[in-house]
C-alpha cells in the first residue's frame, strides 16, 4: 500500500509533457507580445531623440519652433537664427482636422441614427456594406479623386489654384465619414433596447426618443467616434499632401495653398541630409504628430472612463 502511494506520488509530481509545453508556450507568446511593445517604445524613442535634436543639438528654442510663422530651415533670419517656425503647419493640420470633423459629424451621426433607429432594414442592406467597404479604401485613392475632382471644382468656384485647406477638408470629410459613421452605429447599438421602449411607452415621439434618450445615452460612444475620425484626419499624409498645395505659409484663406505637418514631412524628408538642421526640424514635426496622436488616444480614454462612470 505504502509503495503504491509513493509510486503514484512520483507519477503525479513528474514534470509532464504538458507542463513543459506550457512553459514553452508562455515564453513564446510573451516574446511576441514584448516584441510589439518594443516596437512601440522604439518608435517613440527614435522619433523623440531625432525630434528633440533640433532643440538640444541645434539649440532652436521651443517657443520659436511652435510660434514662428516662417518655415525655411535652410535659411537663417536677420538675427542669425534658422527659420524653423512650425506654426503654419500646425495651424494647417488643426484647421483641416477640426473643419473636416465639424462637417463630417452631423452627416455621420445623422446617417448612423437613420441606420440604427429609423430604417434598420435599409441601413443593413445598403448603408452598412457601403460604409464598410469605404472604410477600407486606400487614402491615396481619396487623394487622387481630390486632385482630379475637388481641386478643379474649388478652382472653378473660388478661383486661384484650387489647392488649399478647403480641398483638403473636402477630401478628409469623405475619408473619415465612413469611419465615424460605422463607429457611431456601434455606439447607438450599445444603447439597450428598453431605453427606447420605455420612452416610447411614455408617449414620446420617435424623434424625442432619439434626441433625448438614445443620443444622450450614446454620447460617450459618439464622441469617441468623432475623436477617432479627427485622429485619422490629423495623421493622414498622402491624401492631404496631394490637394493642399504644399506651401509652408500661414494659411491666408481656405483656398490658398498651405501645408500640414504630414504634407511637409512627406515632401521634405527625402530631400534633406540626415543629421542636418533641416532634417532634424522635420523630425520635430514628426514628433509633434506623434504627440498629438498620443493626445487623441488620451482623449478617447478619458471619454471612455467618463462614460463608464455615468
Amino acid at each position: 500500500m505504502m509503495k503504491s502511494t509513493q509510486q503514484l506520488e512520483q507519477q503525479l509530481k513528474r514534470h509532464s509533457k504538458a507542463a513543459k509545453l506550457e512553459i514553452w508556450g508562455k515564453v513564446v507568446s510573451f516574446s511576441a507580445l514584448i516584441l510589439i511593445v518594443a516596437v512601440v517604445v522604439g518608435i517613440i524613442g527614435f522619433v523623440a531623440s531625432k525630434g528633440l535634436a533640433t532643440f538640444f543639438t541645434n539649440h532652436v528654442s521651443l517657443w520659436d519652433f511652435l510660434s514662428g510663422k516662417s518655415w525655411n530651415p535652410g535659411v537663417t533670419d536677420a538675427n542669425g537664427k534658422p527659420e524653423v517656425g512650425a506654426l503654419p503647419m500646425i495651424m494647417g493640420s488643426f484647421l483641416i482636422t477640426v473643419l473636416s470633423a465639424i462637417v463630417a459629424t452631423p452627416f455621420a451621426i445623422g446617417t448612423a441614427v437613420f441606420m440604427n433607429e429609423i430604417s434598420p432594414n435599409k441601413g443593413a442592406k445598403i448603408l452598412q456594406p457601403v460604409t464598410e467597404l469605404l472604410v477600407g479604401i486606400p487614402s491615396v485613392v481619396y487623394g487622387f479623386i481630390g486632385l482630379s475632382v475637388v481641386v478643379p471644382a474649388t478652382r472653378a468656384i473660388f478661383g486661384g489654384s484650387g489647392f488649399g485647406i478647403l480641398s483638403g477638408t473636402c477630401v478628409l470629410f469623405v475619408m473619415i465619414l465612413p469611419t465615424v459613421t460605422s463607429m457611431s452605429v456601434d455606439a447607438l447599438r450599445a444603447v439597450p433596447r428598453y431605453y427606447r421602449e420605455a420612452s416610447l411607452a411614455l408617449g414620446a415621439t420617435q424623434w424625442q426618443t432619439i434626441y433625448k434618450v438614445v443620443l444622450r445615452a450614446a454620447t460617450p460612444g459618439l464622441m469617441t467616434a468623432v475623436v477617432f475620425g479627427m485622429a485619422r484626419a490629423f495623421g493622414e499624409a498622402l491624401a492631404v499632401q496631394m490637394v493642399i498645395g504644399n506651401a509652408a505659409l500661414m494659411p491666408g484663406s481656405l483656398v490658398d495653398p498651405s501645408s500640414t505637418l504630414t504634407s511637409v514631412l512627406t515632401t521634405g524628408i527625402g530631400n534633406t541630409v540626415m543629421g542636418s538642421l533641416q532634417n532634424n526640424a522635420l523630425w520635430s514635426l514628426a514628433l509633434v504628430l506623434l504627440l498629438m496622436s498620443l493626445v487623441f488616444n488620451l482623449i478617447v480614454r478619458l471619454i471612455g472612463r467618463k462614460g463608464r462612470l455615468q
Binding site: 510589439i36 512601440v40 485622429a231 495623421g235 493622414e236 504630414t262 514631412l265 512627406t266 514628426a286 506623434l290
Partner: peptide, 10 residues
Amino acid sequence: EILSSLPSVV
C-alpha cells in the same frame, strides 16, 4: 493601442 493610432507616416 498607441501603435494602432500612430499615423502611418510616422
